[in-house]
């Protein structure tokens, strides 16, 4: 199949950027989206042009490194990571618009690469448990209800790709923040720091410049891990509890 891509090209963080069109002939429908970009980059390099910079690592949908906005949708038409998207999702002759995540706390470094270290700072402000180290405790030492374990696991699958922010009309990172608050807040190990965690993480989220959640749901609709929207309401519940009764 032959396609055309319109890609955001930006030489550096402070350089102006613009959309540039490239024809990509002979694309195999079984290629992943990133393999198609690899092929295009090989051709660009051969021609002596600067290849398109994009992030990727595991290429099996579990690391959260890749992610671009394809035709206005974060990670493109399938609800999966960009690396797990295949060219068979598109048709011969398609024009694909490829852009980086857009949000003020995610500055573009080059082309399709953005700086997502704001996420690291949100996690560092409370997305962990302070546990004494040593040998692993017995698996049955702290019983966890099956439903709680399932919900915690659903939330724990967040890979921090940032698609929720890229899709959110208000540039909010609430789904990401809520996933960690939910993951730890449902488990016994997360209880001692539960209230401080939600308050600190939401404060850092706001300081980093992310927007407020308006419950529109675009985040959950593009999340490659299917983190459910109610995760955010769980965070709200924890936050209200922590603000009303901070010390109990």
């Amino acid at each position: 199949m032959n396609i055309t891509v319109r890609v955001w090209r930006q030489a550096g963080p402070d350089e102006p950027g613009k959309m540039v069109s490239y024809d990509v002939p002979d694309v195999d429908e079984h290629m992943s989206f990133l393999e198609m970009l690899d092929v295009l980059n090989e051709r660009l390099t051969t021609r002596g042009e600067d290849p398109i910079a994009f992030d990727s690592d595991c290429r099996e949908g579990i690391c959260g490194t890749c992610g671009v906005v394809i035709n206005g949708v974060a990670h493109g038409p399938q609800q999966t990571t960009t690396c797990q998207l295949h060219m068979r999702s598109f048709s011969d002759g398609d024009v694909l618009d490829i852009e980086p995540w857009r949000a003020d706390p995610f500055p573009v470094l080059k082309d399709l690469v953005v700086d997502r270290s704001a996420f690291d700072r949100i996690i560092a402000s409370g997305g962990f448990i302070s546990a004494p180290t040593g040998s692993a405790p017995d698996a049955h030492a702290a019983p966890v209800a099956k439903a709680d374990a399932d919900h915690a696991f659903d939330a724990a699958t967040c890979i921090g790709c940032g698609a929720c922010v890229a899709a959110c009309p208000t540039g909010s990172a609430m789904l990401f923040t809520a996933a960690k608050v939910t993951h730890l807040g449902l488990l016994p190990q997360g209880q001692p720091e539960r209230k401080a965690r939600v308050v600190e993480m939401v404060a850092t989220h706001d300081e980093e410049g992310f927007g407020g959640c308006t419950n529109i749901g675009e985040c959950a609709a593009v999340c490659p891990k299917g983190i459910p929207l109610e995760t955010i309401s769980r965070l709200n519940r924890d936050l209200l509890g922590a603000l009303i009764r901070p010390h109990t």
């Binding site: 319109r6 618009d97 852009e99 949000a103 003020d104 899709a167 959110c168 540039g171």
Partner: peptide, 18 residues
């Protein structure tokens, strides 16, 4: 401010979201 300005994505597609 958070979403990076009023003209966020250049693509005219999916303007109404998912």
């Amino acid at each position: 401010h958070a979403r990076g300005g009023t003209s966020r994505y250049d693509s005219p597609k999916a303007r109404r979201g998912v």
